[in-house]
Design a protein around this nucleic acid. Structure first.
Lengths: 136, 136
DNA sequence: GTAGATGCAAAGTATTTGCGACAAG
DNA sequence: CTTGTCGCAAATACTTTGCATCTAC
């Protein structure tokens, strides 16, 4: 891990309140992709007085600062994860909800090529694969 | 166009009410990716008595029958389009909101390969590219 | 005739916001 | 100090649902 969320806040001029420190810690410790309510549950274990409004405000802030990433997987709720060094996409098990992170350079390259073909510069992309586990 | 939405309803045993016929027509005539409210506006131009609840119920029904596709592009609202012969993905202009549909067989193939690699059968996927138009 | 569809309004979710109190820089 | 943040509750946006009525098959 190169830079902690707290460090990123400082370098981006985001004021570090107690609540934000706790939310930052919870995000860092999360290996999954929690939604706001799940985040709220984890956060209130560390400080029971934090309100869900603050969690909403903070994830939005962190997202706009490029510190965490927002996903809209099927299910209606926004889910978040810390932005890491390496970009990756998601393979979602439609039965269990389990999420596998993967990288495929070839696909990345082809995406850029498609955008170019239509006269665009790629600024962002979203790739989600939904699958069912094969019996082995 | 091989089969109309109405024909698909019949072959899937979906009862064809007047409201559904109108919603089917509006979907067929739409070349864009309307959200439910936009759909409601278009539908009520043809029959002002259709309620938005029926539009919600109908798009859900059509989606479950595989007749139309639901997308969750950035913006929070679900958006729909008729399912056509050819599968395609979307390139979205982040400035104008314009949506370009594209197909890239190589990417399709690689997606399947990624899923296999992790022991999964691909049942669905979502690929969205977000770009800005290059000055030419 | 009957199971399923509709319209309406009320109820759910997910998320945002106004405001007075409070805290970081 | 002063600007921005927090907690609370009310507000908003999108979507679903209970119920009495109506309609396609």
């Amino acid at each position: 891990m190169s830079e902690t969320i707290e460090q990123k806040c400082l370098s981006k001029g985001v004021k570090l309140t107690d609540q934000r420190k706790i939310i930052a810690k919870v995000m860092s410790d999360s290996q999954d992709h929690p939604d706001v309510n799940e985040l709220y549950l984890r956060v209130t274990k560390l400080d029971s007085k934090i309100s869900i409004a603050t969690v909403y405000r903070t994830v939005k802030l962190f997202e706009e600062a490029g510190i965490i990433a927002k996903h809209d997987f099927k299910g209606g709720k926004a889910r978040y994860e810390e932005v890491s060094e390496s970009h990756h996409d998601h393979l979602i098990d439609v039965n269990t909800g389990e999420i596998i992170e993967f990288v495929d350079d070839e696909i990345e390259f082809l995406q850029k090529k498609v955008a170019e073909k239509y006269g665009y510069s790629l600024v962002d992309h979203k790739l989600e694969l939904y699958g069912i586990k094969k019996k082995s």
